[in-house]
C-alpha cells in the first residue's frame, strides 16, 4: 500500500491525532475505496468516532486537537494548509448518532443544504427534495405533510430524513457515526437496507459498535483498538478468519 490506490477516495498515511497531550490515533494507514461501505468497529474509546470526524474535519470543532500525517482526498492532504471546509463538507456528508433534524418543516430540512449552496428555483428544489426523500424511502410516508415540523417524525424517520438532508447536497462520500445506535430494530433494518442501496452512488464510511451490522452492510472492515488499526480487510474474511488474535477476541465477544 505504498502507492495511493487508484480507486480510493481517501488515502490515509501515517496519521496521528492528539487531544492536547493525549494521543488518540496512532499511525493510521489505510485506504477507503470508492462505492464501497467501509465499517469501522472497535470498543468504546478506541478512536473510531474521532477518526470518522477527521474525514470531514468536524474534529476541528474540538479545542486543542492536533494532527499529523496525511488524509489524501482528491489528491490533496486535508490535514495541511487551508482547506475550504464548505466545499469539503459539501462533498463529504455526515450522519450522526442521533437523528438531528432542524426544528423546521420536513421540506426545509431537505432543502436547507441545496438552498444555501445556491439553488433558488422552487421547481429545482422540489425535485431535489422529492428525489432525496425517495432515495431514503421516506417519500411515501411524508409526501402529504412536507410542511409539518420534522420534530414530529419518529426516531427512525428522523434519521432517514437526516440522510436525505445529507444526500440532497449531492456529496461523494457519506460518513455515518453510529447511525442506528438510537434506533429500534425495525428502523435499524430500514437504515441498513438504505446503506446497501446508497452504496451504488456513494462511498460510505460507517462507525458502528454493532458487529452484526458491520458484517451485514460493509465490504471492508477496520478494527480499531486504542487508536490503532489492528486489522483492516474484507469484511467476510475479517469476521470469518481474523488474522490477529485481538480481532478474534473482540468479534467473538471475549472483550469490548
Amino acid at each position: 500500500m505504498e502507492l495511493a490506490e487508484k480507486d480510493a477516495v481517501f488515502n490515509i498515511f501515517d496519521m496521528n491525532l492528539w487531544y492536547g497531550d493525549f494521543q488518540a490515533l496512532h499511525n493510521l494507514h489505510f485506504s477507503i475505496k470508492k462505492n464501497e461501505v467501509t465499517a469501522i468497529i472497535g470498543p468504546s474509546g478506541c478512536g473510531k468516532s474521532t477518526f470518522i470526524k477527521t474525514l470531514n474535519l468536524m474534529i476541528n470543532m474540538v479545542p486543542g486537537v492536533k494532527m499529523s500525517g496525511e488524509i489524501k482526498y482528491q489528491d490533496r492532504n486535508i490535514l495541511q494548509g487551508s482547506v475550504d471546509l464548505v466545499q469539503l463538507r459539501k462533498e463529504i456528508g455526515m450522519i450522526f448518532q442521533k437523528g438531528n433534524p432542524f426544528p423546521q418543516s420536513i421540506y426545509n430540512n431537505v432543502a436547507y443544504g441545496p438552498r444555501i449552496h445556491g439553488i433558488k428555483q422552487k421547481k429545482k428544489l422540489d425535485e431535489i427534495v422529492e428525489q432525496s426523500l425517495k432515495d431514503v424511502a421516506l417519500w411515501e410516508e411524508v409526501k402529504d405533510r412536507l410542511d409539518s415540523n420534522a420534530m414530529g417524525l419518529s426516531g427512525g424517520q428522523q434519521q432517514r430524513l437526516c440522510i436525505a438532508r445529507a444526500i440532497a447536497t449531492k456529496p461523494d462520500v457519506i460518513l455515518m457515526d453510529e447511525p442506528t445506535s438510537a434506533l429500534d430494530p425495525i428502523s435499524t433494518l430500514k437504515v441498513e437496507k438504505l446503506i446497501t442501496k446508497l452504496k451504488e452512488d456513494y462511498t460510505i464510511v460507517i462507525v458502528t459498535h454493532n458487529m452484526q451490522q458491520a458484517a451485514r452492510v460493509s465490504d471492508k472492515t477496520a478494527f480499531f483498538l486504542n487508536g490503532e488499526i489492528v486489522e483492516f480487510s474484507d469484511t467476510d474474511s475479517l469476521f470469518s478468519n481474523p488474522s490477529d488474535k485481538r480481532t478474534e477476541e473482540y468479534i467473538t465477544g471475549r472483550f469490548g
Binding site: 468536524m58 463538507r89 459539501k90 438531528n100 436547507y112 443544504g113 449552496h117 447536497t169
Partner: peptide, 13 residues
Amino acid sequence: PGELKEASLALGI
C-alpha cells in the same frame, strides 16, 4: 442542542 449546529456545519454551511 449542539447537534443542530453540528448538522449544519457538516452540510458545509
